[in-house]
Write a protein that binds this DNA or RNA. Structure first.
Lengths: 207, 207
DNA sequence: AGGATTTTATGCGAGATGGTACAAAATTCT
DNA sequence: AGAATTTTGTACCATCTCGCATAAAATCCT
């Protein structure tokens, strides 16, 4: 994505960086995750990362650029996690439950408060005014749908689903379950309740 | 909700208001709807309502107070609309489709751009830091669930659903469909596609 | 040791932001 | 007509916001 000069070459010319850019990106993501894009100031980001503003600037560009990098990173982690959860063997219901468990781990990964999904909790708000964010959302959600659909198709070929089941619809519904869990987690719902709902919803989807 | 002195008494003592408070609240809601709570400035609100800042203050209190009033109004409209759509007679699938059609009308009611759901698009972001908003979300979503659940229960008693169908789970799933439609509408999905998804999702729920 | 190079740290500046003071304007009551 | 009352409009203030200029610090190369 960036030049690999940073990771490969260990001997850099000038004063060494005081902070790991990758770790800083994660802390910046945490800050955005809590307060949203507009609600997070550069002072918040500076405090979260431990970097002063010029360093933030040199490392990530301006505020929006930093947010987009955090968003891209989140998508990557979220999609990779879900693909891995869905790919592991076992019955369809187990695969789906693993995916929802994985999502819940992310949604409740905050220090004190439940933050839900980074995308749903922060990017959706900006989507109306920012076309780049909007496109990123559309692509990401369709990617979720596609992964679920593949899993449903595989299940149908194995006879785990009724023959008239529509993998595309079930996939979008599976994403819908994830969306409502993300929303409700950020709205104060208990993790155990959401887990239980996921379990029962899977029952309906695998009906 | 407020004193009815404003609406009933037509003769007020001092200089008359230049703007209708109710209409102004709707315009303010539009402004928040587009840019979110943090992203909307008092200048935005002033421009949207045509009121200058001191008038905004006198009418609605500070920015957060105005937002909370807009949020309460949206909940009222959204819940009333859905209850009416679900209550009208006919088969379960028709009731559900009416509810989703009604939601889509709201989500695509913006001037140019699709804004999705006001709650999902703006309040969810603030929920982590603002306990009052968070509680409002929890109550509202559970209210949606409850209304759907009543409708599913009525359908089951009429024999429209299989006996082993769980109205509570189906209700939360129905809300999940609404959530994902809200999210996707704001992310640029086409109204026709969302409508089609709703139709097919109803097929799964009414299994 | 000294120059070159890169990052850090302090701090500034132009503009936006939320909120308010104050006087002028528009109406009702006496 | 004039006092009382309520809203409007202008202007202002303290603070925050983003972004950057500039100098000091820490390393590598010769």
């Amino acid at each position: 994505m960036v030049q690999n000069s940073e990771t490969t070459e260990s001997k850099r010319r000038g004063r060494p960086r005081a902070y790991d850019p990758q770790a800083a990106l994660l802390r910046a993501m945490d800050a955005f995750w809590k307060k949203g894009y507009s609600g997070t100031s550069l002072d918040d980001l500076s405090a979260a990362t431990g970097m002063n503003r010029p360093s933030l600037y040199a490392a990530f560009g301006d505020k929006r650029s930093l947010y987009l990098k955090a968003l891209a990173h989140y998508w990557q982690v979220a999609l990779d996690t879900m693909r891995a959860d869905l790919a592991d063997g076992g019955p369809l219901a187990d695969s789906l439950m693993r995916a929802y468990e994985g999502a819940l781990s992310i949604y409740f990964s905050g220090e004190d408060e439940a933050r839900g999904c980074f995308v749903v909790g922060t990017a959706v708000t900006e989507a109306v005014e920012d076309a780049e964010i909007r496109d990123s959302l559309m692509r990401g959600f369709l990617s979720f749908d596609a992964d679920f659909k593949s899993r449903f198709q595989a299940a149908r070929e194995k006879g785990e689903l009724k023959g008239d089941a529509d993998p595309a619809v079930l996939a979008t519904l599976a994403t819908a379950v994830m969306h409502t869990i993300a929303i409700r987690a950020r709205s104060g719902a208990a993790r155990a309740d959401l887990r239980e709902f996921a379990r029962k919803a899977i029952g309906v989807l695998c009906g």
